[in-house]
Amino acid sequence: MMRAVIRNLYLAALAIFLLTPMLVVVVFSFDANRFPTLPWGGFTLAWHREALGDALIVSAMWNSLIVSLGTAVLATILGFCAAYLDYRYRFFGKRSLMLVIAVPPAVPVTILGMAMLAALSRTPMFGTPLGVIVCHVAIAVSFAMALIRLRLGDLGDDLEQAAWNLGASQRNGLLHVVIPFCRPSLIAAFCLSAAVSLDEFMVAWFVGGVNETLSVRVFNLLLGQVNPKINAIGTLVLATSLVLVSIAQMSARVGGTRKDAA
């Protein structure tokens, strides 16, 4: 009894600690006060309206949408290919290749941003949304691959061989058995990659040039003046990320519970 109370108090404290900063942003985005101060100045949607009316912010949203969608699509495809490569084949240098795929998230982002800037500045991709996508894919693909590889581990050897045995070519086996089996993890990888890209600032700032993503726009706004619009954008970004990560988590869980069905 006492134990349960202590445990629940601890969990509540943890949740408050994690959520408070985000909650502050959300609360003050609806506050009529110009500056985030107490007491609460009354409910308003003015800052949201103003943010959505700002041409720079809207164009940054479009950029973010394009970049995160592009990242999600490419990272999921490449992540699947890498995971399948690791699952299915044995070849010289496999460990090194997998290490290279896994390493980008572990590198400090400033260094990653500088490196990507140096690499991209010599290509026509520099300063375009495509450039940002390429860099974000490099980061997100390791998460995508990890998620999909986990699912492939549950596939075993038999299902794919059973497909061949029942007349499926290698291509059809991949298409009709391996990919459907991995679908929950593909959805999870897609959403997580989109979220990673949406939230990423440093690399986008280094290589994006004039094509600001939302997080870069927020940074540039902050350089000017403190503006409640920032809280409004923050709320929107937070909501989107939450939805993406929730879908990712739920999909990953579906994958886990179904594995014993065969």
Partner: peptide, 27 residues
Amino acid sequence: ADRRGTPMVWQNLALFPFLSVEDNVAF
């Protein structure tokens, strides 16, 4: 293997968990 016409019943069955019973049989 896919051109041999030698279907097999597997020890662990190897049914496709993401397909219905009917779609498994019709694979």
